[in-house]
Simulated assay, not measured.
Amino acid sequence: MYFFLRNLSFCDLCVSLIISPKMLLDFLAERKKISFTACTVQMHLSIVFGDIQCLLLAVMAYDRYVAICNLLLYTVAMSRHLCKQLVIGVYTVGVVDSMIYVCCTFQLSFCSSNIINHFFCDVLPLLVLSCSDTRINEIVTFVFMSCITGSSFVTILLSYVYIISTILQVCCVEGQSKAFFTCSFHLTSVVLFFGTLLFMYLRPTSSYSMDTDKIVSVFYSLVIPMLKTLIYSLRNAEVKDALRKAIHSAKGQRKAFSTCTFHLTTVVLLFGTLLFMYLCPTSSYSMDRDKMASVFYTLVILMLNPLIYSLRNKEVKYSLRKALNKLLTNS
């Protein structure tokens, strides 16, 4: 399981690195541009690691099925050699599928606008720019996406049907709860990933909205990788014990909320600015407003972050409280 988790974490990191740096550079650039080659590479790699994530979740579901339904044969059925072969097969399918998408997309003619209404190169925003007939590309996108997501979804569904039936046959309540708890983290990742993916790619073209697609893309490329880290860290016994102690005591609750407040404030500032800059409708776009948001993102937030996190220090809080009390007394 941890072998597949390492690969899944690597894919999450790669998806963020493929999209985030260019997006952050665009914050500082007055003219946002990307070369044809860079666009091709970005699109190719984002599809590769998107497919790998999808297929890895299916492989992990099968791994959970073997671990719960055939526990005594687990080391034989899921040998190190087989795990490596499965991961190599997943990576191969991702690369081949992405090459098909890239070849089909970039053989089209782009004779009209060259402005991509998105913050990274993706299939659907590029199809909108083409002046060629894109019906074949839409069919190819639908068929291949349906095959990969469909096969993964069926594998996950069948695995969990057998897992649940096996768990219900266990007489020990403690064993049932432990098995369900083990699977809950993987199921949460599956719901987050497939829910976003199905919403993005398997909806009718008539109901397609570029602004909606941008919001979902931010959620898929930035938010979900952060959530997965939190989700899988809860499997650690020490993390669970510390969280349980913090929640059950009143003092611990205040301490936990205080600890999270600083990070949440930073997250709100960062993603609030990000969403404001990139997810506003094109019709209401203003360069002056974009400059103000860029100044806030590149200067103000960078100054606020050290101040926010310094407030966690007791001595800083005591000094600040003392200075405020003195100021109020003098006034």
Rank of each mutant, 00 (worst) to 15 (best):
K214T: 03
N117L: 04
V316G: 03
Q53C: 07
L275S: 06
T134F: 05
K317C: 10
T155R: 02
K178H: 13
I34R: 03
G175F: 00
H186T: 13
K84G: 03
L198D: 08
M78K: 05
I52D: 04
L302D: 07
L24N: 06
S233L: 15
M200T: 08
V190N: 04
A67H: 13
I163H: 12
Y208F: 15
S130F: 03
F185T: 12
A242N: 13
A38Y: 01
G150A: 06
Q85R: 14
S177L: 12
L55W: 01
Y208C: 09
I68Y: 08
E138S: 11
F36Y: 05
G150E: 02
H263Y: 12
L230I: 13
I139K: 04
I308W: 01
S35C: 03
S319E: 14
K322C: 09
M277W: 01
L28K: 06
V143R: 02
V218R: 02
I88L: 07
V76G: 01
R135E: 08
L55F: 02
L45M: 15
K32F: 06
A256D: 04
R254T: 03
G195I: 09
L230D: 05
L71E: 15
L129M: 12
I100W: 04
D26S: 10
G94Q: 06
T259C: 11
V90G: 03
Y318V: 05
S20D: 02
Y101N: 09
G150Y: 00
L124K: 07
K322R: 13
V216K: 00
C83P: 00
L279P: 00
E30R: 04
L82G: 05
D288A: 09
Q169N: 14
S233E: 15
L324N: 05
V123L: 08
I215R: 03
L234G: 07
L275W: 04
A242T: 14
K291F: 15
D63G: 04
C54T: 14
V48W: 01
K240R: 15
T196Y: 02
L168C: 13
L17C: 11
L17T: 06
S152P: 00
K178D: 15
S112Q: 08
I100Q: 06
T134W: 01
V161S: 11
T37W: 08
I148T: 15
H186M: 10
K84Y: 15
S331T: 08
I88G: 00
L274T: 12
L5N: 12
Q107G: 06
D213P: 00
Y62S: 13
V173K: 11
L28M: 06
